[in-house]
Design a protein around this nucleic acid. Structure first.
Lengths: 248, 248
DNA sequence: TCAGTTTTTGACAATCCGTCATTTCCCAGA
DNA sequence: TCTGGGAAATGACGGATTGTCAAAAACTGA
């Protein structure tokens, strides 16, 4: 982005500007999904939009900058789903289950979003992007962590959970995050069938359940029908997304 | 690689060929570490080696092919560390702990190796590489999984572990793999300090311990001093690597 | 209508990948 | 030591893509 901040634009221009930026990202995401990172070309974005390349470069300083903004959108999208989950009324561990639904739904319903997150995390694209975007990304990640850590603390507060002294709430959050992110990564890029892993999404959920059982977070998984709970949560909170997810 | 297979070379030539290939990969890895995926240039590899680019292309068909071979080396290296761990004499869960040591050591001692693995997993580089290399990669991954799954089955066989009907040995392996891979990914590319996560490597280990506790895998974490065990394992099996790992 | 300003454009320089005709090197045999 | 043919190395080149910028077009308010 060259100097959009310093410019004075009429409201109409401003709106058009934002609309175009949205369309750029829309097209970029589709191309990224179809052709991957290496196959994403600025010229192609431009021609698909029927604009010239120079115009794209008024919005974003580089190809990596486009990807970075897509990543910000990604985390914001997930944040939105997680926020819904965190407001579910139930015992803290049920709300963790709701988070599980949110994250799984996110990966399955928006695979191209998730893909962007992986790309960002794999290579040092960050350096080539506007610092303002980097800060937005970190801020989003902070809020994501905050939601989970908040629920963990709730669990502690209500007495359902007592963490051992060697594990902080942040570290437990980090554990669930790792399991979820790592699992999704392996799923979306691997050949898990050949490795003998069936139903990998269920596996992620169940591993998290076992982890929480290990921490003795009440109610334990055998004291409550969590699969049922999660089905209910999915219908209750995310019915708008469910139709588009295969076999959910 | 153009036609190296069909050629008939003298033993000396053959040796030189292999040595050069090793040097290519060595240089490539260093450049990858220093400049990232985008900053890795075939011309630079060539000039650093004091060879011409064409020669590099006699060994590898594309830049992605170089990366792919680095990835194969990566998994082979980890496989080697894991194989050592799997031969540790002790109860199955202790051997899982040994695996934990292996994997953590791997990520910390060879961060650039791990980085390659991430790159491979993030983007569709695979398509542009020699199928023979892809098969070697999958074969290595299979053996890695096999080692872990084998220990899980040992645990079941000895009666230390009884898996719930909703979790197969492969799924548990997948869970630990996810936790470890995801955690390492987030560590090596994130800014975890700002997110309030202290000692992330310990956190990974502890989360896995809680997971195994949740499955009631004997001896439970409070029935045995696993940290001590792991220290012993590190000294016993990996003393050759320990010196180079900061704060281990 | 018109001059001044903003926005858009696409030609262009720069960079890098992968190819291949040419040159250089190697070695066996005379 | 010389020589000829095949193997290996070279680097100029074509093609593709990124990012820039001077010029053209579009817009604005008077």
């Amino acid at each position: 982005m060259v100097y959009s901040v310093a410019m004075n634009r009429s409201p109409r221009k401003e709106r058009e500007w934002k609309e175009r930026e949205a369309r750029i990202l829309e097209v970029a995401r589709r191309l990224l999904r179809e052709h991957g990172y290496l196959g994403l070309k600025m010229d192609e974005i431009a021609s698909e939009m029927e604009y010239s390349k120079g115009t794209i470069y008024q919005h974003f300083s580089s190809k990596e900058d486009v990807i970075m903004e897509l990543a910000v959108q990604t985390i914001e999208k997930r944040l939105e789903l997680m926020a819904r989950a965190s407001e579910y009324r139930g015992r803290p561990r049920e709300r963790v289950a709701a988070l599980g639904v949110a994250v799984e739904l996110f990966v399955r319903r928006f695979p191209d979003y998730f893909r962007v997150e992986q790309i960002i995390r794999a290579d040092s694209i960050r350096d080539k992007t506007a610092p303002e975007r980097q800060e937005r990304l970190i801020s989003c990640e902070l809020r994501c962590m905050g939601i989970v850590t908040g629920i963990v603390r709730d669990g502690i507060a209500t007495g359902d959970l007592t963490l051992p002294e060697f594990l902080t709430p942040e570290q437990l959050t980090f554990g669930m995050w790792s399991l979820s992110f790592g699992g999704s990564s392996i799923i979306t890029t691997g050949h898990l069938g050949e490795l003998g892993v069936e139903k990998p999404f269920e596996a992620i959920i169940n591993n998290i359940q076992m982890l929480l059982d290990g921490l003795n977070w009440k109610p334990l998984s055998h004291e409550m029908d969590y699969p049922k709970t999660m089905e209910r949560i999915a219908e209750e909170l995310y019915s708008d997304l469910l139709a588009d997810v295969p076999s959910f």
